[in-house]
């Protein structure tokens, strides 16, 4: 299991917002929505589009983020692909806030 990497002070990430962050040389989208933090691969499994550039549907059930290229939606909590044209989940990573710092641990 890899370690937690700090990505910045929690106060730097507005609610709601989605931000591209560098976690151990990987592009991760850090999402702050309804008081919770989520971290997903910033990659649409359909064709590699950057999720951090797409709309955040924080009020949806389940809350999701949408790829700007073809509209594929992914659940914030587990990265599940919710709509076509994506059929595979994007990776979801563990996030925690400690002493005001957001920390992300990459899943394997």
């Amino acid at each position: 299991m890899s370690q937690f990497f700090p990505v910045g002070p929690a106060g730097d990430f507005a609610d709601p917002s989605s931000t591209l962050v560098d976690v151990d040389d990987e592009s991760i989208v850090l999402i702050h929505a309804s008081g919770r933090f989520y971290a997903l691969d910033d990659v649409c499994t359909h064709d590699g589009g950057p999720l951090s550039d797409g709309p955040l549907n924080a009020g949806d059930d389940p809350p999701s983020i949408e790829c700007p290229r073809h509209g594929a939606e992914f659940a914030l909590a587990d990265g599940a692909a919710l709509t076509m044209p994506a059929t595979k989940p994007t990776r979801a990573h563990e996030v925690k806030v400690e002493d005001g710092q957001v920390l992300v641990r990459l899943c394997d």
């Binding site: 073809h70 509209g71 709509t83």
Partner: peptide
């Protein structure tokens, strides 16, 4: 619209 959502293209 589930197989080809309007966002597709």
């Amino acid at each position: 619209g589930k197989i080809i959502p309007p966002e597709d293209n």
